[in-house]
Nucleic acid binder design. Structure first.
Lengths: 240, 240
DNA sequence: GTAGGATTAAAACATTCGTTTGATCCAGCG
DNA sequence: CGCTGGATCAAACGAATGTTTTAATCCTAC
C-alpha cells in the first residue's frame, strides 16, 4: 500500500525484488532441489543482490517456506472451500465419494494449469518436499496440511461408513502418495513408462486417468474384518 | 580371496572398511538426504578415514550408486524371477493380475523385513531417490529399472487386454508411485494420517492394505474409449 | 529540500564441502 | 632381508556455502 504508484521503468514494482526472488527460487529449487540450490544462484537469476534473500526473508529456510506458503495455502483453502460447497449442497446426507475426491484433485489441477501461480513446476517442488527429510520441512508440511486432511478424512468417513478409521487413514495415505508422486515425479520414471512428452496438456489426461484409479481403490471392500478383500483370493501370499 | 584368514581382532575383516562405509552411508543418506550428508559424517560414523570414500568408491556419487546397486539389483532380480515362475506355471495363459502385483510387492516386503539387507531404511532411501532431481540419479534409476518394468508391463498387458498400452503405462506409474511413496514416506504425512507407530510390524499390514487398493484401481474399467469410467458419472467435472 | 527509514550494493565473514596429496603401515613373496 | 602394492592416515587444497557487516543509494513524507 505504500509505494503503489512507482512503476518507474517497466521492471520495478512495489517489492519487486522480493517477488523476483520468490519466482527465481521456486524455479531453481524445482530444478535442483533445496540443498543443491545456492543463494548465489537464486539472487543471480533474480537480478538481485546476494544479501537480498537474508534481508527480505531472514534465511534460506524461511525463503523456502515462503515459497511453499504462497502457493500451498491458497490451494488447500480452495480444497476446503470446494468441500464446504459439496457438503452444503448435500445437506445432512454424506457427499459422494467421487465428488470428495474431485474436491481434492481439482485445486491441484487448477494450480498446475495456471503458470502465473507457479504451474506444474510448483507441484513438482511440493512433491519433492514430501520426500525431503529436513525437519523444518516436515514441521511445515504437517502444519499446513493438518486442517485440510482432517476435513477430508471425516468427509470420506461419512461417504464410506463400512471402512474403519484406520483403514480410511491408510487409503487416504495411498491417495496422497499417488497424487503427489504423479504430480511431482514426471521425470523419474517417465522414460521407463514411455509416457508422452508430458508438456502437451497431459495435466488433463493425467488426472482423468488418476481419478478413476484412485476411486476404485478407495471404494474397494474393506480388509479389516474377514479376508475377502480381493476378488480372486487364494494363494496370493501377499503377507508372505 | 586374498586376506581371508586375517580377522585379527573382531572388527577387521577383508575389505571391512568398504562395507562399514556402505552401511554408515546408507543410514546417513536415509536420514538426511544425499546433499545434506557430508563425507566427513559418513567416514566418522564408519570409523574410517575421510579419504577412504574416494579411495574405495572414487567419488560421493559413485558411493551412492554403490549403495543403491547393492540392494536394488537383487530386489528387482527377485521380482523378475517371481514373474518367471508365475508365467511358467500359467503356461500360455496370462497370469492373474493379482499375482503379478504380488510379484512386484513381495520382494520389496522381503527387503523391508530383512535388516541385514538394509531393511526399511533402504526403501526410504530409495523412495527419496525417486524424487531427487540429480541427473546421475535419474540415469541410474531408469537404467536399473528398465528391464523389470518392461517385463511387468507386458505381463500386465496380457492380464488386462482391455487396457490400451498408454493406459497401462499410466496405471503402472500410479502403482509405482503409491508403492514407493508408501514405503518411503513413512514420515511425511504419518502424523497427519494418525497412522500407528509404524515400527510395530506394519510392513505386513501396510502391504495387506496397499495391495487390494492398487488391485482395485488396476482392474477398474478403462477410460480410453467412452466416458463411463467412473460408476456414478455426471457432473464431477474432474476435467474442470 | 531535506530528514529518515527502507532498500540495495559490495565486500568480507567463518565454515564446510569434496577431493587430492604424500607419508606410513603391513602382509605377501622372492 | 628387501621390495612391492594395497590400504590407511593426517593434512592440506581450492572452491563454494549461508550469513553478516558496512556503506551507499533510493524514495516517500514532512
Amino acid at each position: 500500500m505504500v509505494g503503489e504508484v512507482i512503476a518507474i521503468g517497466a521492471v520495478r514494482g512495489p517489492a519487486a525484488t522480493k517477488d523476483r526472488i520468490l519466482d527465481a527460487a521456486e524455479a531453481l529449487f524445482m530444478e535442483h532441489g533445496y540443498e543443491a540450490t545456492s543463494l548465489r544462484a537464486i539472487t543471480s537469476a533474480a537480478d538481485a543482490n546476494l544479501a537480498a534473500v537474508n534481508y527480505h526473508f531472514g534465511s534460506k529456510e524461511e525463503l523456502f517456506q515462503a515459497i511453499l506458503t504462497r502457493r500451498l495455502d491458497p490451494m488447500n483453502q480452495e480444497r476446503v472451500a470446494l468441500l464446504d460447497t459439496l457438503e452444503q449442497e448435500a445437506g445432512n446426507a454424506p457427499v459422494d465419494c467421487e465428488r470428495i475426491l474431485a474436491a481434492m484433485i481439482i485445486p491441484a489441477l487448477h494450480l498446475a494449469r495456471d503458470p502465473a501461480r507457479g504451474g506444474s513446476n510448483f507441484l513438482r517442488l511440493l512433491g519433492r518436499a514430501y520426500a525431503d527429510p529436513a525437519p523444518f520441512l516436515r514441521h511445515f508440511l504437517s502444519e499446513h496440511y493438518a486442517v485440510m486432511i482432517g476435513r477430508f478424512k471425516t468427509a470420506f468417513g461419512r461417504a464410506l461408513p463400512q471402512l474403519s478409521r484406520r483403514e480410511l487413514s491408510w487409503r487416504l495415505h495411498f491417495i496422497m502418495g499417488a497424487l503427489s508422486y504423479t504430480l511431482a515425479g514426471t521425470d523419474a520414471l517417465k522414460l521407463i513408462a514411455e509416457i508422452t512428452p508430458a508438456k502437451h496438456r497431459d495435466d488433463e489426461t493425467l488426472l482423468h486417468r488418476l481419478a478413476p484409479f484412485l476411486l476404485a481403490g478407495l471404494q474397494s471392500p474393506p480388509t479389516d474384518s474377514g479376508d475377502d478383500a480381493s476378488p480372486s483370493e487364494g494363494d496370493t501370499r501377499l503377507a508372505r
